[in-house]
Nucleic acid binder design. Structure first.
Length: 153
DNA sequence: GCCAACGTTGGC
DNA sequence: GCCAACGTTGGC
């Protein structure tokens, strides 16, 4: 069964416009270095729908929709000493960190702001509102639908 | 740039 | 296994 997710990124690093530019391709979602977020990524299935959330920027909120194009595989950056995401404790035999591939679905006409998300009754119990600083999180079908409706306005 | 939340590390 | 120190996230 298809599931719903939300991923956060700073748009300077990887935002919805990077996915627009790769409209017919995929982007590797890498650099996640939090175990809870990683574990959620490992549950993702091809075809799952994903909201992209822009954090730490002028226009904070949900900026578009993506789709899982490839399930979990080892994040190559953990083995790359040149990368800021290099993890000296990562073992190629037993990789610690996970990537998935994500593909563009749509860009929001305007960003659905965090202020509006916080006001939505359907999101009061969501990870997004309740738990700070989690960069990959599941959404319930009801949470997904409420956001979809707000985005369509 | 500040700072609260919170995850990780390491000494004991 | 506890917990203080420290680092990171991310809104403001």
């Amino acid at each position: 069964m298809s599931q719903f997710w939300l991923v956060k990124s700073e748009p300077d690093e990887c935002g919805i416009d990077d996915f627009v530019a790769k409209r017919n391709g995929v982007i590797r979602w890498d650099g996640v270095r939090n175990y809870q977020a990683r574990n959620f990524m490992r549950e993702m299935q091809v075809g799952d729908e994903v909201y992209l959330y822009h954090s730490s920027c002028a226009d904070i909120g949900i900026a578009g929709t993506l789709r899982v194009a490839r399930t979990a595989y080892p994040d190559p950056l953990q083995f790359d000493p040149e990368s800021t995401y290099f993890d000296p404790k990562a073992d190629p035999e037993q990789p610690r960190w996970t990537s998935v591939d994500l593909a563009f679905v749509s860009k929001a006409q305007s960003v659905l702001s965090l202020a509006k998300l916080k006001q939505m009754p359907a999101l009061q119990d969501s990870h997004l509102v309740k738990r700070a600083r989690l960069s990959v999180m599941p959404l319930s079908a009801a949470e997904w639908a409420a956001i979809a409706q707000a985005l369509s306005h």
